[in-house]
Design a protein around this nucleic acid. Structure first.
Length: 887
DNA sequence: GTTTTCACG
DNA sequence: ACGTACGTGAAAACT
């Protein structure tokens, strides 16, 4: 029977793995100072391949040493290569050890390279009718491709590969795998250090082989070739070419001492692998296997005692300490709708668990959750508040929220899973939900009490035990005020907003929907006419074929997978055909229809005709909120057609209005404050139109001269660019000027605003030194790529270093305003409710009679949220729907 | 599950 | 020369 064989080029994969992880090389060492990055990367690759390929036979081939038959033939073969770093060579013996633990044979053969071992085995496999996959970091091995042998070459990192089949090979190189060897004979190989024929590179070699079929064919017909320097070289260097062909050819008849029968894949030897991981200090692999990192800790770490709480033993609650850990378990991440699976409550000594959420409504439990006599530690307080609210319980006096606090310590640690987050804190005595509940369709709460209750108790224990270390980190980062005075109080405010929800008129949406549907059908027909065929307009692939293959429109931009058909591209094609305009119109309407009409209709709660979004408080890298299920922070506003959607958002009570206040230019004001730039500050203090005054400065206008609309537009783009971490390229794209002009705008800006220039230099320098940047409230973001050798990655990190303090500080300010606003509404006994936050805007609903109060109060609270060196400006509007807002 | 596109600040 | 504007979420197509 045909079997599947996996052949791995050990040295080249180790090499790739080592350099893929090179920028983190110091992170990967074990207890004995052994470097382990290549071993780690190798295992990532291996797991990836095994999961996707599932071989019956497997082998990792290694080079035996520097001396091979090739170096005998040609002394300089692979000469001139830098010495392999010892940090890599020291890892090779352990790779053999790891492969053994993985149940995979390793092999090397004196005088031969790994390539030849693989070539020979692949031939044997072909003859036996096996299917073979070769994994390598070296493109040379693609010459082994046949109908039964596929070669996977790593692209970047180690898990991404490019699969070479005969067809793909042909497409890529325009020749067959065998012909490719002849190409190499002509063009040589600089990394293996053999020369080929003088003056012939890849393109010429390809052309010649395509023309003559092979090296032999070329030399048989060389007399007919017209006289040229190239012909002269080919004739003079025939011997070299033939030698190079020999060097380039991978042997398929190496004298192996093993055969196919020796390659059976044995599967993982679990105990051996665990021991190996522990020796290598591979914590993440260990935690995936549910094993603690070191042998001592591994013993019985998972054991935990718990008691099942029932209606009959509620008196146990009275014995609890007054500082408890609590978790209401909701299997669905949307806590507005999730079922309840059970809960755990305890104090570090004793853990009480139950599947019966109705026990929460009994007096003793309810007292603990609501009373100021008990402080509560939880994971995701907002989810707990909303979930308990649905059970009629007002959770209060939360002290520690593991999710929220961890996010402040490092916002990139933003897993919503308690187990995963604990693992990130090097705490392993708890599993992730995915491990216990499964994923996809198989996800389910375990029916086995032991399994479920253990998981619940372990989660609670993890919260309890991580409190001290996480608090310590918050203190070290000077983030206690951010946590205690901003994020934790904000959680209650957000919970209140989510619970309140916003009323949406389904009828309005449906009516708009049917009109849009008609228009879509019309435009669709027109497009089919213009294209001369029917196709799926939503498919970028099909659309690309129509526009660029069939209609031969010029290709403006390509994506990784094909033609780009994005708006910017289509706009450039406007003049070529009326179809472009129709496609743009179709896109716009289709977007409204699918995302906003149908999307919003799906999430209106039937019980109250409201939409209850969830704000994610622990997701963004900058400290902004995000909004999901649905996203209410991207409801259309810029174009009138889309803006109409807002007509459906209405007050939830008769006689009420929608009221909204937004910060004007908050990010530029924050920029003026943080940079201390006197010119920028003065413009804000003087209450100027900031884009206009920027234009005035950067275009050096005299007092009487007018700012043209174009000048203002350009200045506005420069201002945006400054906030984003400007680059001349980015600016040139946004305002359609040359890169040189964009560069001049930026230079001029920096001359006029020297404080901003100084800030840009200093924040990047500081980010390099510290590895992170901070906002006004000590919110922190780490920039791992700031030290990258990769220009693109490093540049991105540098722009981020500029942008994050600005975007993040603006987020801090509105968060403070929200907390203060919530207090004010209560202090003034107002019925008004805060419903939405859209980064620089707060949306309320309120009785008409309260509008005058809000018009004074909201701007007052928002203005004074944070004292900057420049004034904050707030503008308010109100109306009968979210669409109808007027000043 | 990933890619492309497009809605928002 | 490199290769992009900063931060998000959702839908649809494709693999």
């Amino acid at each position: 029977m045909a079997e599947k064989m996996l052949l791995i080029d050990g040295n080249s994969i180790a090499f790739r793995a080592f350099f893929a992880m090179h920028n983190q090389i110091d992170k990967f060492t074990n207890q004995n100072g052994l470097h382990t990055a290549a071993i780690y990367g190798f295992k990532l690759m291996l797991d990836h391949v095994l999961a996707n390929y599932q071989p019956d036979k497997a082998l990792v081939a290694f080079d035996a040493g520097k001396q091979t038959f090739r170096t005998e033939m040609y002394a300089d073969y692979k000469g001139g290569r830098a010495k392999t770093p010892t940090e890599l060579t020291e890892q090779l013996p352990y790779l053999h050890e790891m492969m053994h633990a993985c149940g995979i044979k390793t092999y090397q053969l004196a005088n031969y390279e790994a390539d030849d071992i693989i070539g020979t085995l692949a031939r044997l496999g072909d003859q036996a009718g096996d299917e073979t996959l070769i994994v390598t970091g070296d493109r040379d091995l693609t010459q082994l491709v046949t109908d039964n042998t596929t070669v996977a070459v790593t692209i970047k990192g180690v898990t991404q590969t490019e699969m070479y089949t005969p067809a793909h090979f042909q497409e890529k190189f325009g020749v067959t795998p065998t012909q490719f060897i002849d190409m190499k004979a002509l063009m040589g190989d600089s990394s293996d250090n053999y020369p080929g024929v003088t003056g012939i590179g890849e393109k010429t070699a390809q052309k010649l082989i395509q023309e003559y079929g092979s090296l032999d064919g070329l030399y048989e017909n060389i007399d007919q070739m017209r006289k040229s320097k190239r012909k002269e070289n080919l004739v003079n260097e025939e011997k070299i070419a033939r030698e190079c062909k020999d060097l380039a050819t991978i042997r398929r008849d190496a004298p192996l001492t093993i055969g196919l029968d020796d390659l059976k894949y044995q599967g993982v030897q679990t105990e051996e692998l665990i021991k190996f991981y522990q020796e290598m200090n591979f914590k993440s692999f260990l935690s995936k296997m549910n094993v603690a990192p070191s042998t001592e800790e591994a013993t019985d770490a998972k054991e935990i005692a718990y008691t099942e709480l029932t209606a009959d033993n509620l008196d146990l609650l009275a014995d609890l300490d007054h500082h408890v850990t609590f978790q209401l378990e909701m299997p669905n991440e949307n806590y507005h709708l999730s079922t309840f699976a059970g809960f755990v409550i305890g104090d570090g000594q004793k853990w009480l668990v139950s599947r019966d959420e109705s026990l929460l409504q009994t007096a003793p439990v309810k007292k603990i959750l609501t009373s100021d006599q008990y402080t509560k530690d939880v994971f995701n307080a907002k989810a707990q508040i909303v979930g308990l609210h649905r059970l009629g319980i007002d959770l209060n006096y939360v002290a520690f929220d593991l999710l929220l606090a961890s996010y402040l310590v490092d916002p990139s640690d933003n897993s919503n899973d308690l187990g995963e987050l604990a693992h990130a804190h090097d705490y392993y005595d708890v599993k992730s939900d995915e491990e216990v509940y499964g994923k996809g369709v198989k996800r389910a709460i375990p029916t086995d009490d032991q399994v479920f209750f253990t998981h619940l108790a372990q989660k609670a224990r993890a919260i309890h035990e991580l409190r001290a270390p996480v608090y310590a980190q918050l203190k070290e980062h000077e983030q206690m005020p951010l946590y205690e005075d901003i994020e934790l109080p904000l959680t209650y405010v957000l919970a209140k907003m989510e619970i309140a929800g916003i009323k949406v008129n389904a009828q309005t949406l449906k009516e708009m929907g049917s009109k849009l549907k008609e228009r879509l059908a019309e435009i669709e027909q027109v497009i089919y006419q213009e294209a001369g065929t029917e196709f799926n307009i939503n498919s970028t692939k099909q659309l690309g074929e129509i526009l660029f293959d069939k209609m031969k429109l010029p290709v403006i931009k390509k994506t990784r997978t094909g033609y780009s058909t994005a708006v910017a591209v289509l706009e450039k094609l406007q003049g070529y055909s009326p179809i472009i305009g129709h496609i743009l119109e179709y896109r716009q309407i289709a977007k409204l229809q699918s995302t906003y009409i149908e999307g919003l209709l799906k999430v209106i709660h039937s019980s109250d005709q409201k939409i209850h979004t969830r704000y994610l408080q622990t997701l963004t890298a900058t400290g902004r909120l995000s909004s999901v299920d649905p996203n209410l922070q991207n409801i259309p506003v810029r174009l009138e057609e889309g803006r109409q959607i807002r007509r459906a958002f209405v007050p939830s009570e008769p006689g009420w209005k929608i009221f909204s206040s937004d910060y004007s230019q908050i990010e530029l004001r924050v920029l003026a404050h943080i940079t201390g730039d006197k010119n920028l500050q003065q413009d804000f203090i003087d209450g100027k139109d900031i884009h206009e005054s920027t234009a005035r400065r950067i275009f050096h206008l005299l007092p009487g001269e007018a700012v043209t609309p174009d000048m203002r537009r350009h200045a506005k783009a420069v201002n945006f660019g400054i906030v984003y971490g400007i680059s001349d390229y980015g600016l040139s794209q946004s305002i359609h000027v040359t890169r040189k002009q964009a560069h001049e705008f930026i230079e001029s800006y920096f001359e006029e605003f020297p404080g901003v220039k100084k800030y840009v230099t200093e924040i990047v320098k500081s980010a390099h030194e510290k590895g992170y940047v901070e906002t006004l409230t000590h919110r922190r973001r780490y920039l791992d790529d700031i030290h990258s050798k990769n220009f693109a990655k490093r540049s991105f990190a540098e722009r981020t270093a500029m942008n994050t303090p600005i975007q993040g500080s603006a987020a801090d300010i509105i968060k403070i305003a929200m907390i203060n606003m919530d207090k004010m509404l209560r202090a003034h006994n107002l019925k008004a409710r805060m419903l939405l936050q859209i980064h620089d805007e707060l949306v309320f609903e309120a009785p008409a009679a309260e509008i005058p109060t809000l018009e004074k109060l909201v701007p007052q609270v928002m203005d004074s949220a944070f004292k900057l060196d420049v004034p904050l400006k707030v503008e308010s509007k109100y109306g009968d729907t979210w669409y109808d807002l007027k000043k």
